[in-house]
Amino acid sequence: MEIVMAFVVGIIFMAATYLMLSKSLLRIIIGTGLLSHGTHLLVLTMGGLKNGAAPLLGEHAAQYNDPLPQALILTAIVIAFGVTSFFLVLAYRAYQELGTDNMDRLRGTKINE
């Protein structure tokens, strides 16, 4: 299962890189969110996909799951949501002020139309 997840993470990273290299600000924000989700899957996969019991005191199971990767991912999801919300508000405000989401126009570069 880890091999399949590694390929899925690679495809997500590939799509995120493609989106982040585009000229549209909204596509860059979507690519950044996709990259963070790929990172979450990578951390979860590297933590190990095991079939075990929850790490509760008082239970005697032969195998326990490690809660640390899940806690790290939960924290990262909250941070990624906050950063994505900030990027969306920033992009909306830039679009209101400048009337475009094209990165070349936001930089002030002349574009041949």
Rank of each mutant, 00 (worst) to 15 (best):
H37W: 09
G38E: 04
T39I: 15
T39K: 03
T39D: 05
H40E: 11
L41W: 04
L41M: 15
L42W: 11
L42I: 03
V43R: 06
V43G: 05
V43S: 04
L44G: 01
L44H: 03
T45F: 04
M46Q: 14
G47N: 04
G47A: 03
G48F: 07
L49V: 14
L49N: 12
L49G: 07
L49T: 13
K50H: 13
N51E: 12
N51Y: 12
N51D: 13
N51A: 14
A54V: 10
P55Y: 04
P55R: 06
L57P: 09
L57M: 11
G58L: 06
G58T: 06
G58Q: 07
E59I: 15
E59R: 05
H60P: 00
H60W: 06
H60E: 12
A62Q: 10
A62H: 07
A62E: 13
Y64I: 03
N65W: 01
N65S: 11
N65M: 13
N65K: 12
D66C: 02
D66H: 02
D66K: 06
P67C: 05
L68E: 09
L68W: 10
L68S: 11
L68D: 10
L68F: 12
P69A: 06
Q70Y: 12
A71G: 08
A71K: 11
A71P: 00
I73M: 09
I73C: 09
I73T: 15
I73P: 01
L74M: 12
L74A: 14
L74D: 11
T75I: 13
I77P: 01
V78F: 13
V78E: 03
V78I: 15
V78A: 13
V78W: 08
I79F: 15
I79Y: 06
I79V: 15
A80C: 04
A80M: 05
F81T: 13
F81D: 03
G82F: 10
G82I: 11
G82T: 03
G82Y: 03
V83K: 01
V83N: 02
V83I: 13
V83Y: 02
T84N: 08
T84A: 10
S85H: 01
S85Q: 01
F86C: 05
F86T: 05
F87A: 07
F87T: 02
V89L: 15
L90C: 06
L90P: 00
L90Y: 15
A91T: 08
A91E: 05
A91I: 05
A91H: 05
Y92N: 11
Y92S: 15
R93D: 06
A94T: 11
Y95M: 08
Q96C: 08
Q96L: 13
Q96V: 10
E97G: 00
E97P: 00
E97V: 10
L98K: 14
L98W: 06
G99H: 07
G99W: 07
D101S: 11
D101W: 00
N102P: 00
M103G: 00
M103H: 04
M103W: 06
